[in-house]
């Protein structure tokens, strides 16, 4: 028994040996089940790149069926509450961008089961900016809605 264990460890290939089991559902690491953080999209530093990195959201069609409610003027950019409802059928995910933030993509939310395509979130806004909500549907279509928010005091820096 110990012999076998030693051999396995020596080979340094325990993970490799177990990996065929992953697909069977016998060994599913929980970290794989959680959504992976979309580093390329979150790390982009301008809205054009962010939309592209998120998956061709730059070609999304504007839709009146996405409703964004937010204050017209936010006195404190450190906490701005934004409420988004998608009335588009088969909405799978919702992404929120603030065009002028240093990193425009703020959040991606994916809905399934009993969850409705609705979210209220609190964002930091660096300056007066256009906020956009990008909805992706189950059949792969992308829609967008915009909302301008004036910020009196920015919420990202010191």
């Amino acid at each position: 028994m110990f012999e076998l264990r030693r051999k396995l460890l020596k080979g340094g290939s325990v993970a490799a040996l177990l990996s065929p089991l992953l697909g069977t559902g016998l060994l599913v690491p929980t970290s794989v089940l959680a959504a992976d953080w979309n580093r390329p999209a979150f790390g982009t530093r301008n809205i054009g790149d962010a939309l592209k990195a998120y998956g061709n959201a730059n070609t999304a069609s504007e839709s009146p069926d996405i409703v964004i409610s937010a204050p017209e003027i936010a006195e404190n950019g450190a906490k701005v509450e934004i409420e988004i409802t998608s009335n588009i059928e088969n909405t799978r995910s919702l992404a929120i961008f603030a065009d002028k933030n240093p990193m425009p993509l703020s959040a991606i939310l994916e809905f399934s089961g009993p969850a409705l395509p609705y979210a209220r979130v609190q964002l930091k806004l660096a300056e007066t900016t256009r906020v956009r909500a990008v909805v992706k549907t189950l059949d792969g279509k992308t829609h967008v809605a915009f909302r301008e928010i004036k910020v009196t005091l920015g919420g990202c820096g010191g």
């Binding site: 089940l33 959680a34 959504a35 953080w37 979309n38 979150f42 450190a78 906490k79 701005v80 603030a98 933030n101 240093p102 990193m103 993509l105 703020s106 959040a107 991606i108 939310l109 994916e110 809905f111 399934s112 089961g113 009993p114 969850a115 979130v121 609190q122 964002l123 930091k124 806004l125 919420g155 990202c156």
Partner: peptide, 12 residues
């Protein structure tokens, strides 16, 4: 799972 979220530093 019913909601999966990914956030950036710009969430308050």
């Amino acid at each position: 799972t019913m909601i999966e979220g990914q956030l950036n530093t710009s969430v308050s």
